[in-house]
Write a protein that binds this DNA or RNA. Structure first.
Lengths: 194, 194
DNA sequence: CGTCTATTTGAATGTACTCAAAAGCGGTGG
DNA sequence: CCACCGCTTTTGAGTACATTCAAATAGACG
């Protein structure tokens, strides 16, 4: 399997020697999943974080009323999995499901240790992953408080134009925290304006 | 200044020798701030994270309409500051202001390096800080989507009973993402029930 | 073409907000 | 000791944003 996308991704963040690169290639495993399959199911411990080589997944929480709330999408060149569960070994509050046929590279704890032993800077890479995940979550929180649904949607489109085409509307609505019906009305309103 | 609260806090998370403890004592500085003073102002780079020994602070974001949105409180035995800005050196999206006279212990980048050199496990401590900050932010996000204002308030009271007494209601409302008037109505409703 | 899923539409409703005003409350100074 | 001030909380009326439910329409796929 071609993991050059991953190598490129890592190279942008930490310095890798040729030796490092072939080590990574030999150490990591890829997996192919069909649309609808799960990378993680709510209640299970997240045993690995995954880098998406191709395809698209959603991370979502099912609440006590049975409603699903999408908290993240991931496409090519993105990470997925539940970092919280992965590091603490606590059961995950989220499921990760493929929206398309998807190929990922897995990073188990063992992989991380091996990579860390070979490439000391790898620790910093992980810290940065957390850091940006945290920043993102907090920004979404504040946005949620200060923006109307329409504004949130416009921001979302600006920030993630790639998602618009390949992710069904009702899932975008869920990600934004609004109903699919209301998103439909917002879209109509926007289309009438321009 | 007595930083035993900090030592206890750290000891619960990583193993410290007596030597480590006195190193920490000598390395770190405490600061006393009056009610109303700032630990950080939005737009500035966060140069240090701070551990609260005594007192109470709020972290908040001022949006483009000039409205304030509280994202966190911190009292004794809690951390404060903007981790994102601290690690990336980007201007902070948040201000941190004292709600009471407050004493903190500062951790500058230099302090972290020194502590890391003396106590290798310290790196893990920092990663854990991020991790829990991230987990918290994500949980709040999901709660926001699935709970009504009343439910959010009840959860808040259960989770942070200490805050109820010392933090003004209108700030709790801001933290929950609702107006002070509406929180007042919710409280009335709850008091009528029981 | 029929079926299944996704999107749109409309009416009725609910949750939370805005604005304005009143009431409560702690401190300070006369 | 009371009057006044500033700040916080409460109350009420009117409104806006978003939801629910039900039904119609549109798209995708075999």
């Amino acid at each position: 399997m071609d993991i050059s996308l991953l190598i490129t991704h890592l190279s942008k963040r930490i310095i890798l020697t040729e030796n490092d690169k072939s080590f990574i290639q030999s150490e990591l495993n890829t997996e192919f999943l069909k649309k609808g399959e799960f990378l993680l199911e709510q209640g299970d411990v997240c045993k690995k974080t995954s880098f998406v080589i191709e395809g698209c997944v959603k991370t979502y929480h099912t609440d006590k009323n049975g409603s699903e709330h999408v908290v993240a999408f991931a496409i090519e060149d993105w990470w997925t999995g539940d970092l919280a569960s992965f590091t603490t070994n606590a059961p995950s509050d989220y499921s990760v499901k493929c929206l398309e046929d998807t190929t990922v590279v897995h990073f188990s704890k063992k992989n991380y240790e091996a990579l860390h032993a070979q490439i000391p800077l790898f620790e910093k890479f992980l810290t940065d992953l957390y850091s940006s995940a945290y920043v993102n979550a907090q920004k979404r929180l504040v946005n949620n408080f200060s923006l109307t649904a329409k504004e949130s949607y416009i921001e979302f489109r600006k920030k993630y134009p790639q998602f618009e085409q390949r992710i069904p509307q009702y899932l975008i609505a869920s990600y934004l925290g609004i109903t699919k019906e209301f998103l439909s009305k917002i879209r109509k309103e926007i289309s009438l304006e321009s």
